[in-house]
């Protein structure tokens, strides 16, 4: 009975805490945005360091992308494989999937990798989030160049459908910092998640319509297509180009998913950003 009587008071107490958390998160984000030169410079250095001693440099990312798309298009030779639309389907699917996989798997160990900065400077936590976001965007830029080349060679001339596809890409980029925050906190609280998430993302490729086409099959493919949020990220970018249809449903689902993800990310950032230093 007493608990029931206290419920409104508890709700009142939780509300200011939530508002304070959100204010803290927005404060951290705005400070990090003012320090954009820091995370842009660090992300460029990260990319440069990864390929500094190689002959092709960052172009290796483009080669990797071509290798994967080519392999899938070759291995999954079906009557569709000679169809340019299937190659375009795989090319865009791979572009989005690689971006998501890299973002998520690298996020899980983010705070651990940044431990010396977090324990030795007062940089806002969101600086590290944006550093990784920027790094993933730069890497995806190389794959995007490869994807555009494949599409043009496949006879997909640049038209207004590409603009619709950009909406999907924009949503994907908007969701990226939220993905990074959520998975970085998961990795800080649950270190084993680095391996669990890595494995799930590897397996997840087969449960996401990256290279297989959903055409009303029942069973596992139906669930994998309809109940997998990544499907909608993929279709939001892919459908306008491969089918010419505005992906209203995919963009709506992606939009709601982004809102939910950002809400969680903001709460995590607001509530735990000052505690991360004790966790790593």
């Amino acid at each position: 009975m007493a608990a029931k009587d206290n419920a409104p008071e508890q709700r009142i107490a939780i509300l200011p805490a939530m508002i304070a958390a959100l204010n803290g998160a927005f404060d951290d984000i705005s400070k990090a945005m003012r320090l954009h030169r820091v995370w842009i410079a660090l992300a460029h250095e990260d990319i440069g360091d990864q390929h500094r001693r190689t002959t092709l440099g960052p172009l290796w990312m483009l080669v990797n992308y071509f290798a994967f798309v080519g392999t899938f298009a070759f291995v999954f030779v079906t009557k569709d494989a000679s169809n340019p639309s299937y190659i375009a389907y795989v090319a865009i699917g791979m572009l989005v999937w690689f971006y998501l996989t890299e973002t998520i798997t690298m996020s899980v160990s983010l705070f651990q990798r940044e431990a010396s900065f977090i324990q030795g400077t007062t940089l806002p936590l969101f600086v590290y989030v944006m550093r990784l976001t920027m790094q993933c965007i730069i890497r995806a830029g190389y794959s995007l160049a490869g994807c555009v080349l494949i599409l043009l060679l496949g006879g997909y001339g640049i038209n207004t459908n590409w603009l619709l596809s950009l909406v999907g890409l924009l949503l994907l980029i908007l969701a990226t910092p939220a993905f990074v925050v959520v998975f970085a906190f998961l990795g800080a609280f649950f270190p084993d998640s680095e391996f669990i998430v890595g494995n799930l993302m590897r397996v997840g490729m087969f449960f996401t319509p990256v290279f297989w086409v959903y055409s009303g099959q029942e069973g596992i493919q139906e669930y994998a297509y309809n109940w997998n949020p990544f499907t909608y990220f993929l279709e939001g970018v892919r459908e306008p180009i491969t089918t010419g249809i505005f992906p209203g449903h995919a963009l709506a689902v992606t939009g709601y998913f982004c809102l939910g993800l950002w809400a969680i990310a903001l709460l995590l950032l607001g509530l735990y950003r000052k505690r991360i230093v004790f966790l790593i």
Partner: peptide, 10 residues
């Protein structure tokens, strides 16, 4: 500060 019992399988 709390000694966080990290969720882990170890």
């Amino acid at each position: 500060y709390r000694l966080f019992e990290k969720l882990t399988l170890s």
